[in-house]
């Protein structure tokens, strides 16, 4: 598939991190379109049809249109990024993603100066998605980033894991990865990218605004209303694995400047 393969390793690849096994990464997922159980996506996502994938790019862009994957990312630099992945449910993984900086894609489509946010939308294939049939949350799943967050070099659009095309349950064929935010911000199986001038809706914020803010930066000091975010358990450690402390911005301190002057307890 387009965009998979290694063309150099970035300064952001964190070799100190030990990635989870491929089987951990592919067997423990939240992808409610395929069911709410952690094992449901691995069981059900095989039905997702990723052939002839197109991504609508619209809104405040110079080159709007219906892009094929190759039109959108072909020729752009694919890098391996080994990132911590922290779920809002207080578990975590380390994933060796293969992807393209979102900024490169934004440059290709030509962002107009009036754009302030990027909005994303996940595919809906009701006939292939048991969770959509059961309406477990409103679909399509939508997410968004402020433009400066989207343009940050840590923000990538991933197409592979471990140098191979990613499994459907991980968000094939292309997904967002924003490593300093809770996992649900990293929207999967994207079919629409819109450049807009107002803060776009995001699914979990629509479901429960008190529990899930638009920003959703990993923050050990701001509890989820129902559970603590101070610690996390890394997946794959077995029955006797201890929790580890959660790091501010999931350890990616270089993004702190994006939120200067903002009270992160208010803008959670």
């Amino acid at each position: 598939a387009a965009g998979v393969g290694l063309v150099g390793s970035s300064a952001y690849a964190q070799d100190a991190l030990t990635p989870n096994s491929k089987s951990d990464i592919e067997s423990y997922n939240n992808f409610y379109e395929f069911g709410t159980g952690k094992e449901d996506p691995a069981r059900n996502a095989g039905k997702l049809d990723t052939s002839n994938w197109t991504i609508a790019v619209d809104g405040l862009v110079d080159n709007p249109g219906e892009y094929s994957l190759n039109d959108l990312i072909g020729g752009l630099t694919v890098e391996e990024r080994i990132y911590r992945f922290r779920c809002v449910e207080a578990w975590s993984m380390v994933v060796p993603w293969n992807g393209i900086e979102l900024a490169d894609i934004l440059d290709r489509v030509g962002v107009q100066s009036s754009a302030k946010y990027v909005a994303f939308e996940t595919v809906v294939q009701p006939e292939n998605m048991i969770g959509v049939q059961r309406n477990v949350i409103p679909f399509p799943y939508v997410e968004g980033l402020r433009l400066d967050e989207a343009r940050h070099p840590l923000t990538i659009m991933a197409t592979g894991i471990y140098g191979e095309p990613m499994a459907n349950q991980n968000g094939a064929p292309i997904r967002l990865v924003v490593p300093w935010k809770y996992g649900f911000k990293s929207i999967k199986s994207i079919v629409r990218i819109s450049l807009v001038d107002e803060q776009p809706p995001s699914t979990w914020n629509l479901i429960n605004a008190r529990e899930y803010g638009f920003y959703s930066n990993v923050n050990p000091n701001v509890s989820h209303p129902r559970w603590s975010q101070a610690t996390e358990r890394k997946i794959g450690g077995g029955l006797f694995a201890a929790r580890q402390d959660t790091l501010m911005f999931n350890g990616y301190d270089e993004v702190a400047g994006l939120y200067e002057g903002m009270d992160l307890a208010t803008f959670y």
């Binding site: 989870n20 358990r233 794959g236 029955l239 694995a241």
Partner: peptide, 14 residues
């Protein structure tokens, strides 16, 4: 849980 049959996060599963 010990042998991995409960998945990669056995504590929560158990």
């Amino acid at each position: 849980g010990l042998t991995g049959a409960l998945g990669p996060e056995p504590i929560n599963a158990l």
